[in-house]
Design a protein around this nucleic acid. Structure first.
Length: 742
DNA sequence: GAGCACTGC
């Protein structure tokens, strides 16, 4: 259904006929017609996002299907669709529409559809040949979002190796990849040396200066916050009018920097004239993602006359939000990045130096409306020695579990040789396969199970989905749906900066934990969800309890969506049914065990716990947990996630009984990842067989240290699994030699 | 007894 009465976001008014791209219209259309793949490059302001889809549309491609344009972010998809529908003089949702999660504004008539890359990936799951589309345009490919990278590989395969008549397409799909100038050669080479079309941009020059206050050895955040403040104040007193954007890494730092700016700015003598602009003062505004939306909106208002605006922001200001009037950038050179460590199976959020390309992008934020200046607080030496050329793409530093399951469901059995633009390390892929095997999404041969087919339908991490499906088969999904929703939105607990408020917040949070009535963080989430939903004034309830209303609101929508998916699957598919007699609390926790048994830990020395995943890592319960301070009464626990700061903390914890997981635990050790690797590739080298054997030998030697608790079970079957895999390998090798297998 | 950038389905 088309929704036509939506408020239209304001857009700046380029005349679309004078955009740089308009001179290349004919050649562009010709290039799309002549090539299955095309790379289009051009800086911000070239008009490629808004104009190219219109050119292709007017050239008649819509007769063979929609023109789909993907964006990495929701707001971008929505605002661009608004803009293009205006230019084409139609109402949004008709000829031009958009689709993002929770908001489908497209109809039967839609010929140009803007969407998030995640949405297109979901569509491919339902329709692998994308029969509804004549052209697919992947925009912002240089951002290398996980979904865009997967789409690139899939589209490369579809278009280069069409599968005969089974595709259901009458004409071949055209693929256009749009990117900033940085990686076009690589993209073109990846897509079979396809042509690259370059469109000149429309940005202003930015002068870049190294202040040299941070050298290769300064990684302590207190240093760069202080130096960033200093550079900002120097700039304020010496440069002509124009607003400032300061890039730091996180909320607490930003608040600290703002405090320092307030203090020091007061000490500056403001009777300072530069040319004709008198700079009287400095308006200091923090900006980060978890800030209330209204407060974020203030950022966009122009400052009072004679006052300079200074926005101190996280990376949110690098791509997601554009602030007009910025002429100066202060770049700290650091960013907070979530990296997956497959060796310990943990995600670690860490502060790292940005890449040179990211630094250039930050600088570019000063040149959007006029010439600008960028002050880099670090030295040229830091730039050369500490900053990589490009940011490591998401696919190489994130957990691949969900992605691998998606690929497997799309029939990509060989997930190791899938055409990745940048190949993830093999051990990341193997770790994902292992995890999928452990939660029954794939079998020992690497094929997707019935359960895996159900799991892929849910926009959740596989472990959580497994727990939810267990609950659904036991008829208690009402317990798990809210929990799954709460765990997939941003942190719901507000941590105010002020100390007084902080104490109040903590008191309220403790009260909520007590009211939940059981020492289990998952139950606390369930209780908060239900309390808030039952309240007549949920937003006020949230304010009173220091809970993020925005986060809870999205948890409500996620819960509804998950419930709908579950209902559909129960109707459409053969859904497992199980029975269980026992208390509700036990039922709930047993469901959690089904999904999280890889995150089991056992009480160790003092207040510490020892994980049972084979690494035997020592972990502590995070002080925010309902179970904090109660370690003495605990024996076995499961946890949802890990936070590495001064210690390794587990958060969202639940006490369990050993009996509930004892039959599951052997699974953590029974499967050899090299076996899965061989299955994934359908071929193994002699070297790898040697590796398996060495690994097996090492394992036998190490036995007893980590797996003491498991030993008494006497259920391990490593030997058989490896020897089976080896036998299979030898058989295949023989067949190959005999020429039976190509 | 501590403190989590940003997206997305």
């Amino acid at each position: 259904m088309a929704k036509r009465d939506k408020p239209c976001p304001t857009v700046d008014s380029w005349d679309s006929k004078t955009l740089p791209i308009s001179h290349h219209r004919k050649e562009l259309v010709q290039a799309v017609k002549a090539n299955p793949f095309l790379v289009v490059t051009g800086e911000t302001g070239s008009g490629k996002t808004t104009q190219l889809p219109q050119y292709i549309h007017k050239a008649g491609f819509w007769k063979d299907g929609m023109i789909g344009v993907t964006q990495p972010r929701r707001v971008a998809a929505i605002t661009v669709a608004h803009r293009v529908s205006q230019e084409m003089g139609c109402s949004l949702g008709r000829e031009v529409g958009y689709q993002v999660r929770f908001d489908d504004c497209s109809s039967q008539d839609t010929a140009i559809k803007y969407m998030t890359d995640g949405c297109l990936l979901r569509e491919i799951l339902a329709d692998p040949s994308l029969t509804k589309y004549s052209v697919v345009i992947l925009d912002e490919a240089h951002e290398r979002s996980l979904n865009t990278d997967i789409l690139l590989g899939l589209l490369k395969r579809r278009v280069l190796q069409p599968r005969g008549g089974s595709s259901g397409r009458s004409t071949p799909l055209k693929v256009v990849v749009m990117s900033a100038t940085l990686e076009t050669d690589k993209l073109s080479a990846f897509l079979g040396d396809c042509p690259v079309f370059t469109i000149p941009g429309r940005t202003f020059p930015v002068v870049e200066r190294f202040c040299g206050l941070i050298g290769p050895k300064d990684t302590d955040s207190t240093v760069y916050v202080k130096e960033a403040v200093k550079v900002t104040l120097d700039l304020h007193t010496s440069e002509p009018a124009g607003d400032i954007l300061v890039f730091l890494t996180g909320q607490s730092e930003i608040e600290k920097a703002c405090d320092m700016l307030y203090e020091k700015a007061e000490a500056i003598d403001y009777r300072y004239d530069v040319q004709d602009h008198s700079v009287d003062g400095l308006l200091i505004l923090p900006l980060y993602g978890s800030m209330p939306t209204e407060q974020q909106r203030q950022i966009f208002q122009p400052p009072p006359k004679g006052v300079r605006k200074c926005v101190v922001a996280t990376n949110i200001a690098a791509t997601s939000l554009t602030i007009d009037g910025i002429r100066y950038i202060v770049d700290s050179g650091f960013v907070k990045q979530l990296n997956h460590n497959s060796r310990v199976g943990l995600d670690i959020l860490e502060v790292v130096p940005i890449s040179k390309s990211e630094a250039q992008q930050r600088a570019g934020r000063a040149g959007r409306t006029s010439a600008g200046k960028c002050f880099r607080i670090y030295s040229k030496e830091f730039w050369e020695k500490c900053m990589p050329e490009y940011t490591v793409p998401e696919i190489q530093r994130t957990s691949l579990t969900a992605v691998i399951l998606t690929l497997k469901c799309l029939g990509v059995h060989d997930v190791i040789r899938f055409p990745y633009l940048d190949r993830p390390e093999e051990r990341f892929i193997l770790a994902a396969l292992k995890q999928l095997y452990q939660c029954d999404a794939i079998d020992r041969r690497g094929h997707v199970t019935k359960l895996g087919q159900l799991m892929v339908e849910f926009p959740l991490p596989p472990g959580l989905t497994r727990a939810l499906l267990k609950a659904a088969s036991l008829g208690c999904e009402d317990l798990l749906l809210p929990v799954a929703a709460m765990l997939s939105v941003e942190n719901i607990f507000i941590r105010p900066g002020q100390q007084e408020k902080q104490q109040d917040a903590e008191r309220k949070h403790r009260q909520l934990i007590a009211e939940a009535g059981s020492c289990n963080d998952f139950t606390v989430l369930l209780s908060i969800f239900e309390k808030c939903r039952a309240s007549d004034t949920p937003s006020a309830w949230c304010r009173d309890h220091w809970i993020h209303w925005r986060a809870l609101k999205s948890a409500f929508s996620v819960e509804t969506q998950l419930r709908e998916i579950l209902l559909r699957l129960k109707q459409q598919r053969d859904f497992p049914v199980e029975k269980f007699d026992g208390s509700r609390s036990e039922l709930f926790r047993r469901c959690l065990c089904a999904g999280y048994f890889a995150n089991v830990a056992r009480r160790s020395v003092g207040r510490t716990f020892c994980t049972m995943d084979g690494h035997g890592s020592v972990v502590h319960i995070h002080p925010s947990s309902a179970l904090f301070d109660q370690e003495a009464q605990l024996d076995w626990i499961i946890f949802h996630d890990v936070l590495v700061t001064s210690r390794v903390y587990v958060r969202t914890v639940c006490p369990i009984r050993y009996e509930w997981v004892k039959d599951l635990l052997p699974k953590l050790h029974e499967v050899d990842v090299y076996e899965l690797s061989s299955v994934a590739r359908e071929e193994v080298t002699d070297e790898e067989v040697a590796k398996w054997e060495a690994k097996e030998a090492a394992k036998r030697q190490a036995e007893g240290s980590v797996e003491d608790a498991l030993k008494k079970l006497g259920k391990r079957n490593n030997e058989s699994s490896v020897s089976e895999a080896r036998a299979r390998y030898l058989q295949r090798k023989q067949e190959r030699q005999q020429g039976k297998v190509p």
